[in-house]
Design a protein around this nucleic acid. Structure first.
Length: 220
DNA sequence: AGCCAGGACTGAG
DNA sequence: CTCAGTCATGGC
């Protein structure tokens, strides 16, 4: 709606502000690519604290791999992931995506087209845009930016996008604004999650120490 | 004691 | 197509 150039500039400023504060934080809390997949599913509308408990359970059951989950009895899987909430639907989704990954090779997948992989992931029930993109970026190191609730909250509060902005609006905005490298998208999203968790709560935002504080958007 | 969390699907209208 | 309702646990 406003000047597209101003918005791109604002994205760059946010990115730079994050770099100044956090450095090139480069992250997803997982030990293997498939653990990224598990975490991406379990963290749907759920705090990471609860996801950790479920992942610990899975690790202790030696079940952080596609084969184990695909062949596990649903009752047992539900019990292991219960702490992360929505355990019935997540158990289904985890099983489906495990069946998908079971017969595939990560290095081979990395060479395939991002668009095709994304379509395949989205065809799995329980996998939406954010989860698919998290898998693409953090497990397969594809050049794609992940939009989450923090992204939307921060972008709207900084007057970057309207409150009814869509996932693709925000994804394209970022991908047209900063360098199209998975490493850069990884770092930026990492910053956003850290800022979101630490300073940008829904109810009582603590903007005082927020690294993004000084950045003003075109709409605000 | 409520509110909320790194969503996605479904059924109305 | 938009959108409220639904799914569930644990932390703060």
């Amino acid at each position: 709606m406003k000047n597209a150039l101003d918005r791109r500039k604002t994205i760059l400023e946010l990115y730079q502000a994050g770099l100044d504060h956090y450095g090139d934080l480069y992250w997803w809390p997982a030990e293997t690519p498939f653990e990224v997949v598990i975490g991406a599913v379990l963290t749907q509308n759920t705090s990471w604290k609860n996801v950790e408990k479920a992942i610990v359970n899975l690790r202790e059951a030696s079940a952080c791999n596609a084969e184990a989950i695909a062949s596990m009895h649903y009752k047992k899987l539900e019990k292991l992931i219960r702490p992360s909430g929505f355990f019935r639907s997540k158990r289904r989704t985890l099983r489906e995506i495990s069946l998908y990954f079971k017969n595939r090779d990560i290095p081979v997948m990395k060479k395939r087209s991002t668009v095709e992989l994304r379509k395949e992931l989205l065809s799995i029930k329980g996998i939406g845009e954010e989860t698919a993109d998290s898998v693409l970026l953090y497990a397969l190191e594809k050049n794609i930016f992940v939009v989450d609730a923090y992204t939307k909250r921060i972008f709207t509060r900084h007057g970057l996008v309207a409150k009814n902005a869509t996932y693709q609006n925000m994804q394209k905005l970022v991908m047209n604004s900063i360098k199209r490298e998975s490493r850069v998208f990884n770092i930026f999203h990492s910053h956003i999650v850290e800022v979101g968790k630490t300073y940008c709560a829904k109810k009582e935002p603590r903007c005082g120490q927020c690294p993004y504080k000084k950045v003003k958007g075109p709409i605000s």
